[in-house]
Design a protein around this nucleic acid. Structure first.
Length: 576
RNA sequence: CGGGGUGUGGCCCAGUUGGCUAGGGCACCUGAAUGGGGUUCAGGGGGUCGGAAGUUCGAGUCUUCUCAUCCCGACCA
């Protein structure tokens, strides 16, 4: 490709609106332009990269027996009502004003509606369907360029099986394909256990790329033996011991003590594990004639309540109580709440496993500016239940005590999960088994963010000069530069190399044939857009029969005799 | 949705207590020189200062409203 004919608007300065490296570089390298918040135009260079990623995905999906579809983004509201997801999604869904249609944020409903009249016998199953298609989500806050947009490209796949054993097989095929896709895309990635409660599925795995630009928090170990989304992560930690005493609990005055830290300071102690932190949650009543369920959650003073774990226990609608509710339920404001002396006697009390049967605890007295000491959960709190409720912290050990856990940020590039029969039942997609008995189809759903792969790659592969492409997703393999345009012989020599040696497009050559652009400008553009191999033709070396090759990744410069150029380039292309 | 920031040629920005024809750098056009790490000189084009209303003799600057956009948080099947 001749640069003189290729639209590549590079920017010298960082656009002020971009914060993360991949966003800045995609803008500066002329890959994308923002149209409006969360919506991007894909320019030629960006499109080449996205297409290459799609090509890899397509190959890997086809390799596991996937059939490619292309479904519409415009969908009737009705099918979303049937599964109840028009309410579940709420504002996330873009709704068409002058027609009863919505822009699809995902495609379980549409795929299931195709499955319903067509997958009617056990003989039609299993099958795997996928598409690579534009998704629309009205994100409340788009951010970080294409990492979280309102319009983006997603590969979404769906498996249809007769039962859960079949689903396991389909799921494992996708898992394997995902690993190939991310490896071929050049990502350093890992997969984590993820939250799947709301979908009613039995398993869920997210594919993550460690990055400061990420929005997810994960717990991982150095050796990769454990990795989990913080939402569901568990660790080993010694529980709070039971002391051999039987002191009665009693309230005491703690003026202006609102937080655990203040309480520790007030008491002059550093170990906060016996200062039981209390938080009140509300599980809203499903029917208006029933009452809300109130839950008091106790964790150690130096721990935080993991709200996702709470959701797994009580359902997705659980929320923390409002200040007015707290006063009404407990009799005190946040900071003075505890398990003893609650105003509302029907509050369900649960505690983290670390507090199981612990005594000599201090917690709020449900009276402002008072706390209660010597609380014995076994003796004083009837019907208490224990669950794993805490957020795992950096530096803790895995449950087998063998590895240290690191808490880090990551970008989610893919998510696979076992759906089960939720959609099949809602849309009545049933098949008949050998005995003529009807069963709902068992489904799995598998997503990959195409642009997120590109952005994640750039997050992991860039330097102060620009992007460092490599492997299969590099937009071009070779960047050919004539550094001495004033010398006609050099221009001719470069043309000859482009046309004859590399046969034009065959080897994916980007040829900077711009006549009026000075060499320094070309070199900087080359480093910015980051094609792996730069070939520089200039008087200095050419008169000795040599051309220069610069490896973008290492910065290494090689002088290669012209007659050996082709072979050397082939060799380097395989390496970088 | 809550909090904070920013809107001035294509891009990055300056613009004093309200005051004359709104500036600079980059980019762009013309000419000349230059030609291996974002050249130099000369000339030139391009701006309803996000929008609306208001205060004032006078508004880029002050007030109110509004729109857009970015960041933090909440949210994210």
């Amino acid at each position: 490709m001749r640069l003189s004919k290729f639209f590549l608007p590079t920017l010298k300065e960082d656009p002020v609106d971009a914060v993360v490296a991949s966003h800045k570089l995609m803008l500066r390298a002329g890959m994308i332009r923002q149209l409006t918040s969360g919506v991007y135009s894909y320019l030629p260079l960006g499109l080449i990269v996205f297409r290459k990623i799609e090509h890899i995905i397509r190959e890997e999906m086809n390799a596991i027996g996937g059939s490619e579809f292309l479904l519409p983004a415009l969908t009737p509201s009705e099918i979303w009502s049937q599964t109840g997801r028009i309410e579940d999604f709420g504002d996330i869904m873009f709704k068409i004003k002058n027609r009863d249609l919505v822009l699809a944020p995902t495609h379980e409903e549409v795929f299931t509606s195709i499955a319903k009249p067509n997958l009617v016998s056990y003989k039609d199953l299993p099958t795997m369907w996928y598409q690579i298609q534009t998704k629309f989500r009205n994100e409340a806050r788009p951010r970080s360029g294409v990492l979280r947009g309102r319009q983006f490209t997603m590969k979404d796949a769906y498996s249809f099986d007769v039962d859960y054993d079949g689903l396991d097989i389909s799921y494992n095929l996708q898992d394997k394909a995902y690993k190939s896709i991310f490896t071929r895309s050049g990502l350093r990635f890992f997969s984590v256990n993820a939250f799947s409660g709301a979908m009613g599925g039995s398993a869920s795995e997210e594919f993550m790329v460690e990055s400061e630009a990420g929005e997810d928090i994960v717990a991982i170990t150095e050796d990769g033996s454990y990795s989990s989304n913080i939402e569901v992560a568990v660790s080993y930690k010694e529980g709070v011991s039971r002391r051999d005493s039987n002191l009665s609990y009693e309230p005491f005055h703690t003026p202006n003590v609102k937080s655990i830290d203040e309480l520790a300071e007030f008491l002059g102690i550093s170990d906060k594990s016996r200062l039981a932190k209390s938080r009140v949650f509300v599980n809203p009543a499903k029917d208006s004639d029933k009452r809300n369920e109130y839950i008091l959650v106790l964790v150690c003073g130096d721990d935080e309540v993991n709200e996702t774990k709470l959701q797994n226990i009580f359902g997705q609608n659980i929320r923390s109580g409002h200040p007015e509710e707290l006063a009404e339920i407990t009799g005190a404001d946040a900071g003075s709440i505890g398990p003893i002396g609650l105003k509302n006697k029907e509050v369900k009390i649960i505690a983290d496993l670390l507090l199981k049967d612990a005594n000599e605890l201090i917690s709020g007295a449900n009276k402002n500016d008072y706390h209660t000491k010597n609380i014995d959960l076994m003796r004083d709190v009837k019907n208490i239940e224990y669950y794993d409720l805490r957020v795992v912290k950096d530096g803790e050990l895995t449950t087998d005590k063998k590895q240290k856990i690191k808490i880090t940020k990551a970008i989610e590039v893919g998510h696979i999960f076992k759906l089960g029969s939720k959609y099949a039942e809602a849309l009545h997609a049933y098949y008949l088994d050998k005995d003529g008995i009807e069963h709902p189809i068992v489904m799995g759903s598998y997503g990959i963010g195409v642009e997120r792969i590109a952005a994640s790659y750039i997050e992991q592969n860039h330097d102060e000069k620009g992007i460092i492409w490599g492997g299969e997703i590099a937009p071009f393999k070779i960047h050919l530069i004539c550094a001495s345009v004033a010398n006609k012989d050099m221009v001719e020599a470069t043309e000859k190399i482009y046309n004859d040696l590399f046969n034009g497009e065959k080897l994916e050559v980007l040829y900077d044939d711009r006549y009026e652009v000075r060499p320094g400008f070309k070199f900087n553009d080359a480093d910015l857009i980051g094609i792996p191999i730069q070939i520089i033709i200039g008087e200095r070396n050419y008169k000795n029969g040599n051309v220069e090759i610069k490896i973008r990744k290492t910065g290494e410069r090689l002088l290669i005799p012209l007659d050996n150029l082709y072979n050397k380039v082939l060799e380097l292309i395989n390496e970088y």
